[in-house]
């Protein structure tokens, strides 16, 4: 019997629940940490970024309006799917970051556990970010956290999977929709994550994943008038300054980059970064 031919995977973008190629038709070579070719990834353009924002905006109403319980369930479902494809992610992380197999497995395990941890926050975030306020009048006065809107995430460059999940999960669990710019040199785990998201009840458009040159994609996203917040985790200091300036025009919420050890307990900072507080005065029954 002859040897089987290897079947190479075509990595694609993830926009609005679909897997398009880049509008520009471009791709770029992705290599492992030693410079060996792994795959061609789509080199997304600013028009892909624009389309991704449109898709995210379209999905926002449904996702932010879903019950917290439902969002938590869907996120947990994603963790189940991730668990089933652990080996694939471990292999991709190992080649992307030059890790040993056992270290890569440990990293993927941490990432899945973190996803589950964030999934649990969906119906608990209101308890820590909301309050019942005492006021001098016959009113119930309640403050509740609401999602900010469309969030652009510049995924960390140094941690292609755990880092990505650590910025993505907290943004969507509270009801935001997102446009993710995957790590430039190691986008494959992010592009494979899209396949998991597409098969786990997450509505299309809640997460949109782009691969390409970080400055080329991040710049139009930071300037985009219909993006409400941006997480600069994967931007280098010079780029981050430019992006912050661009983001100031429509008063985006900005999370500045700072060194993080992604393996440690993340705390609630990122959960609380993309929330707005809504306060309601309700007359008390007499």
């Amino acid at each position: 019997m002859s040897e089987r031919l290897s079947i190479l995977k075509t990595y694609k973008l993830y926009v609005g629940g679909k897997f398009p190629r880049s509008e520009s038709g471009r791709v770029y070579e992705v290599t492992d940490s030693k410079g060996n070719w792994l795959a061609n990834a789509p080199l997304a353009s600013r028009k892909d970024a624009r389309d991704a924002v449109t898709a995210a905006r379209k999905a926002f109403g449904g996702w932010s309006g879903a019950t917290a319980y439902n969002r938590g369930q869907i996120l947990y479902r994603i963790a189940e799917m991730l668990e089933g494809r652990r080996d694939q992610f471990a292999a991709e992380v190992a080649s992307a970051e030059g890790l040993s197999a056992s270290k890569a497995v440990a990293l993927v395990n941490t990432a899945i556990d973190r996803w589950v941890w964030y999934a649990g926050w969906s119906d608990k975030i209101a308890q820590i970010a909301g309050s019942a306020n005492p006021v001098a009048g016959p009113y119930f006065n309640l403050s509740t956290p609401e999602p900010t809107g469309v969030v652009a995430l510049i995924a960390p460059q140094d941690s292609s999977f755990l880092g990505l999940i650590s910025v993505l999960a907290p943004a969507i669990v509270t009801g935001n929709t997102t446009v993710v710019v995957a790590a430039e040199r190691a986008p494959l785990p992010a592009l494979s994550l899209a396949e998991v998201l597409a098969t786990s009840d997450l509505p299309g458009g809640v997460v949109n994943i782009l691969s390409g040159r970080t400055p080329e994609l991040a710049t139009p996203l930071a300037a985009h008038q219909d993006v409400n917040a941006i997480d600069l985790a994967g931007a280098d200091p010079a780029l981050a300054t430019d992006l912050e300036t661009a983001a100031a025009d429509n008063l985006k919420r900005v999370v500045r980059p700072h060194p993080v050890d992604w393996r440690t307990d993340p705390g609630t900072d990122r959960l609380l970064s993309f929330l707005e507080t809504k306060t309601v005065w309700h007359p008390m029954g007499v």
């Binding site: 905006r57 300037a223 985009h224 008038q225 219909d226 025009d249």
Partner: peptide, 14 residues
């Protein structure tokens, strides 16, 4: 039109 004059993608809020 707003995109052409400002260089920034606009949105339905505007």
């Amino acid at each position: 039109r707003q995109k052409l004059s400002t260089g920034r993608y606009s949105g339905p809020d505007y």
